[in-house]
Write a protein that binds this DNA or RNA. Structure first.
Length: 286
DNA sequence: TAAGGACGCCACAGGGGTGA
DNA sequence: TCACCCCTGTGGCGTCCTTA
């Protein structure tokens, strides 16, 4: 098993760009990286078993976020790439996984939307009054800067505003579409349906269970192995839902499972579940 | 009045504390 | 053990305040 895991770690080095020759240096590299992995965290060090743009920028395994993040070249480049990717709309930027800033490749957005979307317009009882106020304000006018949105929604208190915005981001209703540094640092917010109309039109045809199965398949194709608990926590789904998805993947021989003490290990089949491939025709459009 | 310092605004990750 | 909350430190810019 140990030998097998070493082999999988080497595969990960290639896929997650933890080797110098594959490190992300340009906006094109960053776009291709997200297309290859499907979805990734922004600024994590990879210990959470998730692809990370920051790790890909560093191009090595042993990554630790420095204390002085703003004066660090690798961190600055990652932030710059985040700003550019969001501005170009090359990937969906949200706090979708574990409440951590995440980039999602556009082809996977409908699956995330099928799993998490919930609109205040149709389910107002699920949202706080602050979230509904922000959503309505953006329906009247989108996009808006943070300051404009605070004013127009009537929620000036930062803590309340951040919490409400987080609700809407988790429900994939609002996205950050731009970062402005002058005259004042601010984010620009936009309705997700306006920013990504094509991706958010489709999901009604995808069931929640199908979406979860598709996303776990994508996850394991990228990281090659994970524990069942990691897969469950990542997508914030119940053990029963995750269990059903994993059973289906195992019955299709896409993954193999191993039980060790209290841990269930999931390993992607090398032949039946290869890593994602980039759609070069689509990618060249960017 | 000019120069320099202090502070606030922003989002982010990490760490510590707390409660289930 | 885990999830959640709160606080801290971070840079660049504008604004306000203090000092010479």
């Amino acid at each position: 098993m140990e030998k097998n895991l070493n082999h999988l770690e080497q595969l990960r080095d290639h896929i997650l760009r933890r080797i110098p020759e594959r490190r992300v240096e340009t906006i094109e590299d960053a776009y291709y990286f997200i297309e290859e992995v499907g979805f990734c965290h922004l600024m994590t060090d990879g210990r959470d078993n998730m692809p990370s743009l920051y790790v890909a920028v560093c191009g090595r395994r042993d990554v630790r976020l420095p204390r002085n993040v703003q004066s660090d070249a690798e961190t600055s480049l990652t932030w710059h790439l985040k700003d550019e990717l969001a501005r170009l709309g090359a990937a969906f930027y949200a706090k979708q996984l574990q409440n951590i800033p995440t980039f999602i490749a556009l082809d996977l957005v409908p699956y995330f939307y099928a799993l998490y979307s919930c609109s205040p317009a149709f389910s107002p009882q699920k949202f706080s009054s602050d979230a509904i106020a922000i959503y309505r304000s953006l329906r009247r006018e989108s996009p808006q800067t943070t300051a404009q949105l605070k004013l127009s929604s009537g929620i000036e208190e930062r803590k309340r505003f951040d919490k409400a915005l987080e609700e809407l981001q988790l429900a994939m209703q609002v996205v950050m579409s731009e970062v402005r540094y002058v005259p004042k640092f601010t984010y620009v917010w936009e309705l997700a349906a306006v920013r990504f109309p094509e991706q958010l039109r489709k999901p009604k045809r995808i069931s929640r269970q199908d979406a979860l199965r598709h996303l776990i398949t994508n996850y394991l194709a990228t990281v090659r192995y994970a524990t069942a608990r990691q897969a469950q926590c990542l997508f914030r789904c119940s053990p029963a839902e995750t269990g059903r998805a994993l059973e289906q993947l195992e019955s299709q021989s896409l993954i193999r499972t191993f039980a060790e003490s209290n841990t269930v290990l999931l390993i992607a089949d090398e032949d039946r579940l290869p890593p994602r491939r980039i759609d070069l025709e689509k990618a060249s459009a960017w």
